[in-house]
Amino acid sequence: MSEPILSTRGLSKSFGALKAASDITLDLKPGEIHAVIGPNGAGKSTLIGLISGTLAPDDGQVALAGQDVTSLGPEDRAKAGLGRTFQISALAMEDTVLENALLGAVGATRQARRLFSPVQRDTALTERAMTALTRVGLDKVKDTRCAELSHGQRRQLEVAVALTLAPKAFVMDEPMAGLGAEGSKTMTGFLDTLRAEAPILLVEHDMDAVFALADRVSVMVYGKLIATGTVDEIRASRDVQDAYLGSDA
């Protein structure tokens, strides 16, 4: 297989006595969707924080496209090519859908130092933003304020903003949460095509989506990765069944 786009080596993070992540080593190869699953409190969000740079690890490294990004903050990791979506939408709620997508375009093209020319009249930026919105199906609500969007639409907008960055790797924190059956299906179909552009590290609770999409699955329990493998291997794994169903089962 080819070189991984994103990899972690021995990532560890403790909060006091709690080992939220210990010795996490995983990688994301070109063209794949690598899902991370695990019960609540397994440390998945901590892992996302460590990968995206909002948390500093106690130990271990994160590499993105061959570059060690462990010491970089979230904005520099984004510049290095990481496209992240949030579990709890972190959007500019008072702004419109288009403005949120434009923000991504401004960030991706490093134009935030322009103080005087109207951003909405910049055709290159608006085209970039509109392309991303069209792809997730939000182009018709571009002038709606983000606060008035449904939960599912916010999820789609999160993905659209990440798309404007044209990242080397996506890190998505529960993109299906709150989407409902129909929305979840649409998003699954979309992510399926997206992996050709950039690989996706997918943290997700929706097992149907995970099993439909993932090339590989890693299982996280109590801050540790207990298994990594194909969907079939993970389904068959005794350790995983114990972790999910309890070892007494």
Binding site: E75, A90, L91, D95
Partner: peptide, 15 residues
């Protein structure tokens, strides 16, 4: 204006 609303959002797009 976005940084006022969500610092995390702005950092995520590389600013």
């Amino acid at each position: 204006n976005a940084a006022r609303q969500s610092e995390a959002r702005v950092a995520t797009v590389g600013l």
